[in-house]
Design a protein around this nucleic acid. Structure first.
Length: 296
DNA sequence: AGGGCCTCCTGAGAGC
DNA sequence: TGCTCTCAGGAGGCCC
């Protein structure tokens, strides 16, 4: 099903909703959430005139009072913290996590609703912001100011692209952690925004074996981790995230990830560097792919 | 206290 | 062709 682009508001979103949904079967990580946030900036200063909960059974039940709380409020700002999109209103904020398959898309009100559209925010100018999520791993919360005190945001670690994420602080943090570095990179209390795909790629780029205990990493290895974390995420953001780039190209041309993934999704295939077959193991029910030769 | 496993969910793809 | 099973993963919560 193709939504006529004349129905849709502002690129880069919403040209072909079918493609958007399919490509977002890759989970949104920090670059994708950042790209969504940037794409929604044009909604700032618009008002929410209504909110409909079609299916409030997301990862957590959506507060049934949210429609009442947000209606007639103006969107003051749209920001990101970790993988959360924060829509700031006058008397509080909406905190939205896209989970694995969550999508925020904007269209005109008359556009027919899709299966798995769970929450509809009607805005002024006859447009709607819709939360669409096939697997319903995402969540939507209401938080009064100051929102950083909210339980979901309170314990989060540093943003990976900020100055607070640096080799010395990372080394100090890791020295207290006994679990594997792969699990640690996924721990949002250590550093935010990294999911399974980027964790695999970062460890490969840094030449660090995913099973290494976090507290065994030397300062020079922490420097490599910080360097490659920042370069990979920065590159992904510059390219518009993984899946949104794909979305702009419904002709199924490979997007950022298909072009640049070195290990994720390539188990048993040759290493792009040394040609050794890539190995894979499970870490907490998540697939970890690595090169047994390049990663020590 | 810290680490690791379980759980929620749906659709794609493989196997029969 | 159609049914069944497996797999994918974010992150809170529970168990050891």
């Amino acid at each position: 099903m193709i939504i006529d682009s004349s129905d849709c508001i502002s690129p880069p979103f919403f040209v072909n909703i079918e493609s958007f949904i399919i490509t977002l079967l890759l989970m949104p990580e920090l670059p994708e959430v950042e790209t969504v946030k940037q794409g929604l900036q044009f909604l700032i200063k618009t008002s929410i005139t209504a909110c409909e909960l079609i299916n409030s059974q997301l990862r957590w039940p959506v507060d049934p009072l949210i429609p009442q709380k947000i209606t007639q409020q103006c969107i003051l700002d749209i920001t990101r913290r970790a993988k959360y999109i924060v829509i700031k209103l006058r008397h509080g904020s909406l905190i939205i996590h896209l989970g694995m398959t969550g999508v925020l898309y904007v269209c005109q009100s008359h556009v027919s609703r899709k299966k798995h559209d769970h929450v509809i925010f009607t805005l002024s100018n006859n447009i709607e912001l819709r939360y669409h999520d096939v697997r319903r791993f995402g969540s939507i919360h209401w938080a009064p100011h100051p929102i950083m005190q909210h339980r979901l945001l309170f314990q989060l670690g540093p943003e990976p692209l900020s100055d607070s994420f640096n080799p010395s602080s990372l080394h100090a943090t890791l020295s207290t952690v006994k679990k594997s570095i792969k699990s640690t990179l996924l721990d949002q209390k250590i550093v935010v925004g990294i999911g399974n795909i980027y964790a695999n790629e970062i460890l490969f780029a840094a030449g660090i074996h995913p099973c290494r205990l976090s507290n065994s990493l030397r300062i020079d290895e922490c420097k490599l981790l910080v360097k490659h974390t920042q370069s990979i995420l920065t590159k992904a953001i510059a390219l518009g995230g993984t899946t949104l780039k794909d979305f702009l190209n419904p002709q199924a041309k490979p997007g950022y990830f298909q072009q640049t993934l070195h290990v994720y999704g390539r188990k048993d295939q040759p290493c792009t560097h040394c040609h050794t077959n890539l190995a894979h193991i499970m870490h907490g029910q998540r697939t970890t792919v690595f090169c047994p030769t390049c990663q020590k």
